[in-house]
Amino acid sequence: MKKVFALLFTVMVLTVGLVLFAKAPSVSAKAAPDAALVGMNTEDATIHGLAGEKPLFINFWATWCPPCVGEMPAIEAMYQKYGDQLNFAAITIDEDTAAAAAFLESRGLTLPVYTGDLNKLGNDYQLDFIPRSVLIGTDGSILAEYTGGMNEAALEAFLSKAF
């Protein structure tokens, strides 16, 4: 009985430990996959095209995803602050693009929002979980990636990797 309790206690300690001693995500040096983007409140574009102009911040999101919706005001604030130095692309993976459009309008968001080939984007950018943020340099390499919602301070630190 003691062994069982010890084993289960270990599982609990490991779970807590994994979280408390979690390290920052490692920076990936891989090239960002290209994809065509369909603008919902802006012109159509491609990921490589946008990244070629200025470092590109991509946020994959959906209207049905609470953390995505939660961090959108912070991303909008970053767009207002750094929009002249970085390109922004909030790519919705909503299949119901009308829902995404209604959301944009209701929240008064001005940052560029796109949709596209969701299967290709999902595979290329490993969109098992959203929100997922990716920062792409002008050379087309991925500078930073993050899965999960961020507040303004965390977003600012994330975007600083482009400068």
Binding site: T15, V16, L18, V19, K23, P25, S26, E145, T147, G149
Partner: peptide, 17 residues
């Protein structure tokens, strides 16, 4: 998926407990 560690927080601790 080690990259997910970064987004884990107290909610994960609570659920683990």
């Amino acid at each position: 998926r080690p990259e997910i560690f970064a987004s884990a927080g107290w909610l994960t601790v609570w659920k683990g407990a």
